[in-house]
Amino acid sequence: MTDPLEDFIGRSVHEPKTLRGRTVRLLGFVSAGKSPDTWYLNRLKLSCCAADVRTLHVEMHGAKAPDNDTWVEVTGVLRAEHVTVENPVPAMEVGVLKPVGQPRNPYHDAPPTDG
């Protein structure tokens, strides 16, 4: 399954059973995590203008973090089913990590493409 980050996060909060045991592929850029063995996959979601930008995060486990700001495609599975509305940051167990180029429009939360 290939999802925009926002859809994956929303499903992890509101419909986690739909992700149980499913392999998901996500696209985003890297930032450091809270501990040496975690890092974040991020997207910046721009609705209207720079003043309303939101950062979407998924915490990554099981793979060494690439350099900050590197764009990557991550394939993996949701690590835990309890993600709260107050802190909508799901954790993902990384299966495959692939560096990719920055998308043409980095503020459009599009899923990875097969091309």
Rank of each mutant, 00 (worst) to 15 (best):
H82Q: 14
D37W: 03
T70F: 06
N105S: 12
T38I: 02
V24I: 15
G10N: 14
V96C: 01
T38M: 02
D37Q: 10
P36W: 05
E59V: 01
K98M: 12
L78A: 10
V74F: 06
H57I: 00
V83L: 10
N68C: 12
M92I: 03
A91R: 13
T84P: 00
S47F: 14
V94T: 09
R20C: 04
R43I: 02
V85C: 07
A63T: 00
S35H: 03
M92A: 11
P103W: 07
S12H: 09
T2Q: 14
V94W: 03
L26M: 08
G33D: 04
A63V: 00
R104Y: 06
T55W: 03
P88V: 10
E81F: 05
P88N: 11
L5S: 04
D67N: 10
L19V: 10
K34R: 14
T23L: 15
R11P: 00
G28M: 07
T70G: 06
K17F: 07
R22I: 06
T70C: 08
L97M: 11
G101N: 11
R79P: 00
G95E: 12
A65L: 01
S31F: 01
V30A: 12
V58S: 07
L46C: 08
T2L: 08
T38S: 14
C48T: 11
V100W: 06
W39Q: 01
V100E: 05
D7A: 14
P36M: 03
Q102V: 06
R20Q: 13
R25T: 15
H108C: 05
H57F: 15
R20K: 15
T2S: 13
K45Q: 14
H14N: 15
D52K: 08
G115V: 04
D109V: 10
P90M: 07
E81T: 09
H61K: 12
A32K: 04
P103V: 03
D3H: 15
A80C: 01
M60N: 08
E73Y: 00
A51L: 10
V77P: 00
V30F: 02
S47D: 13
G115F: 06
V72M: 06
L46T: 02
L27Y: 07
V85I: 13
L46P: 00
T2I: 08
Y40I: 00
T75K: 13
P16T: 05
R54L: 09
M1L: 13
H82M: 13
R54G: 00
V83P: 04
W71A: 12
E93H: 09
H82W: 11
P66D: 09
E86M: 13
